[in-house]
Amino acid sequence: MTLDELDIGLLRALAEDATLGAAELGRRVGLSQPATWRRIKRLREAGVLAGRRLDLDLEKLGFGVTVFLGVKLATKGRVSLEDFERAVTAIPEVQTVEHVLGLYDFRLRVVARDLSDFERVLRRRIMMLPGVGDVEANVLLSEERRPGPI
Rank of each mutant, 00 (worst) to 15 (best):
Q33G: 03
L140D: 10
I126V: 10
P149N: 04
I8H: 04
P149R: 08
M1H: 13
I8F: 01
G51A: 07
D105Q: 12
K72V: 01
D83R: 14
G26W: 03
I91G: 01
R86Y: 04
V88I: 06
L108I: 03
P92V: 09
T19R: 13
P149T: 14
L81G: 13
V121T: 10
Q33P: 04
T36R: 11
V100R: 01
L3V: 09
D17A: 04
E136L: 15
R120Y: 05
R125K: 15
S32E: 12
A13V: 05
T66N: 07
G62T: 11
P34A: 14
R78A: 10
L11P: 00
R145A: 13
A35D: 03
K41R: 08
G47S: 02
R42N: 05
L31N: 02
T19W: 13
V79N: 02
L73A: 04
L43Y: 15
E98A: 11
D105W: 12
A87F: 12
S32A: 10
A35S: 14
M128I: 13
L73H: 06
D83P: 03
A112C: 01
R38V: 07
L14S: 11
L141Q: 15
V67A: 03
N138K: 12
L103R: 14
L14Y: 05
A46G: 11
A15Y: 14
D17R: 10
A87S: 13
S32R: 00
K41I: 00
A13K: 02
E24C: 00
F106T: 04
V65L: 10
A35G: 13
T19Q: 12
E16M: 08
R120M: 03
R145Q: 14
L103N: 07
P149E: 12
V139D: 14
A15D: 14
K76N: 07
F84S: 02
A87H: 05
G102D: 10
L73V: 03
R109C: 02
T75S: 14
Y104N: 06
D4M: 04
D114P: 06
Y104W: 08
E59A: 11
S142G: 15
P34F: 13
L11V: 00
R28D: 13
Q33L: 05
E119Q: 14
P92F: 05
M127Y: 10
G47D: 05
T96Q: 04
V97L: 07
A87Y: 03
V79A: 09
A87C: 01
V121P: 00
R145C: 09
F118G: 02
A46N: 08
L11T: 01
D83F: 12
G47H: 02
